[in-house]
Amino acid sequence: MRVPLGRLAFARSGDKGDTANIGVIALAPPAYEHLVRELTADRVKDHFAGVCRGQVERFELPNLFALNFLLHESLGGGGTVSLMLDAQGKTFGAGILSLEVEAPDEVVEVCDRVLAGEISGRPPSEE
């Protein structure tokens, strides 16, 4: 099923100089592998074409079921140099969630139940 990323994940973004970071967190562990496959650095760069002038780097955090993206040259110079309304990339986290991704129906269903508050996104492990 093709869904907006917000059906599989949530996110928080911030800044370091002229680089924005976006941490994308799977709503449930089974969604993580689909984020890894679908959310390539290239797709993220395309999604932020309006602000991102530099490279996009991606880091995997399997323990946290999360990906971290660095969007270089994306904040109009960063800090107090920038003339941008969102000079710290604060809104990029919510902004990435409209990117469309492919995932199996049953995974989307689990994530929907997390979003609805029916189950925890991180159920206690079997260890």
């Binding site: 996110a11 928080r12 911030g14 941490g23 880091f59 946290l64 660095l70 996104g121």
Partner: peptide
């Protein structure tokens, strides 16, 4: 919760390792 803490863990993150 796991969600509030994980959001902060990835905040202003560079190379996490």
């Amino acid at each position: 919760t796991w969600a509030t803490v994980t959001e902060q863990l990835v905040y202003e993150m560079g190379d996490p390792e």
